[in-house]
Design a protein around this nucleic acid. Structure first.
Lengths: 207, 207
DNA sequence: TACTCATTCGACCATACTGGTCAATATAAA
DNA sequence: TTTATATTGACCAGTATGGTCGAATGAGTA
């Protein structure tokens, strides 16, 4: 069925993808409205069900699509040769930001999916998802130089605390910038602030 | 209108409160269903609109109620004489947990309210809400002994990093225990683990 | 031109649920 | 018995749902 969709003009395809990702991101699977999606995408109702058999097939397609992007444009680009944990996370944050600016709805979509886990996935998607999680973990923890840490603390705990702190900053920023147009914001200020926080983390957790 | 509700048998009152808090917590204001609330509370549809003029009045009542509880059973019980920042947050976490076990839906309800901010509040609730926020901040940051921190880092940044890290642990725990019945969990293990994380924070951020 | 076949649309469908009403009761008090 | 209060759920008009389908359009071809 979906070959029809694949062969669409890229612009139209993207409009539909974005509309659908956004709607599912905001409302989860069950509550997302196909009516809103077609309205937002600027196509007739019939087309959506011409490309996809039903709402569920569309959703599964989006999941596959989102996982592919996160794998290829985020996880795979995290530099495993960087052995400094904080630097690794710094680089990961940069790559994530690039990925986000190219695909603004992907992360919200995945976030809603993770939070809700509303419906059982078919097996291929389920295993794909588990692979994704494993790869994500590996890209953060593999090949880290543990000797950088002060030796009076548990390194595993340090990993977690640093990660939580960084996620905290990112959430804090997301809240602060909520509502503002991303294009009109000077990000360099926030990157600098972010780096300052990272320096504090290094100073405190490294010896 | 609400005096009728206030004078209800406590058990019935509580059933209605819990049903409503849960429904609004899960769905936000607009999507919450009064039908589900009455079904869950085990009362007839008519009664809800006998106690409250309409959905909105019910919602505002719940907001007031939730804010009162958070103020009196959470914020006010945070010990301002504890000047050690980490210890302050530790004690706050304990008090929060007590409050949570007495009122399991309050925090989810407030969380959804904060996240969505769907509708404009009447002035009295709005100012009440701002007071609550101010008090919450004060209870965390007032009368902290800043000299405990190592002097090669910015104390304000340390505040934030520590707070984010602790929130991170709490979220991590919430996810981990999601689905499990709270009553069947041995919390003492997780408290110990939590304290270990706090010790790491002290070791790293204090001098 | 005439015929074919892939696209595209949106009115339409049965179904479900919404917040809120109200006439009918049950219960209790006087 | 009368009066006042509590309680119910069938009912209302309105909205939204996922999905269908006949008709129209357009492109390519013979």
């Amino acid at each position: 069925m979906t070959e029809l969709f694949e062969n669409l003009e890229p612009k139209k395809k993207e409009r539909i993808l974005n509309a659908a990702l956004e709607e599912f991101a905001e409302n989860g699977y069950k509550r997302a409205s196909t009516n809103k999606i077609v309205r937002q995408a600027g196509i007739g109702k019939g087309m959506l069900f011409y490309y996809f058999q039903n709402k569920q097939e569309l959703y599964h397609y989006l999941l596959q699509y989102a996982m592919d992007i996160i794998m290829e444009e985020y996880f795979q680009r995290i530099d495993l040769s960087e052995t400094d944990f904080v630097e690794r996370l710094k680089q990961a944050a940069q790559v994530k930001m690039q990925c986000f600016s190219r695909h603004p709805h992907i992360f919200n979509f995945m976030g809603t999916f993770l939070l809700a886990s509303e419906e059982q996935l078919p097996e291929n998607l389920q295993t794909r998802f588990e692979t994704l999680q494993r790869e994500g973990n590996a890209r953060i923890y593999d090949n880290i130089d543990r000797t950088l840490f002060r030796d009076d603390i548990d390194v595993e705990k340090a990993y977690h605390l640093i990660q939580w702190a960084i996620e905290g900053y990112q959430n804090h920023l997301k809240n602060k910038l909520k509502g503002e147009k991303m294009t009109s914001i000077d990000m360099s200020y926030y990157w600098d602030e972010f780096y300052e926080y990272l320096d504090v983390l290094k100073k405190t957790f490294y010896e």
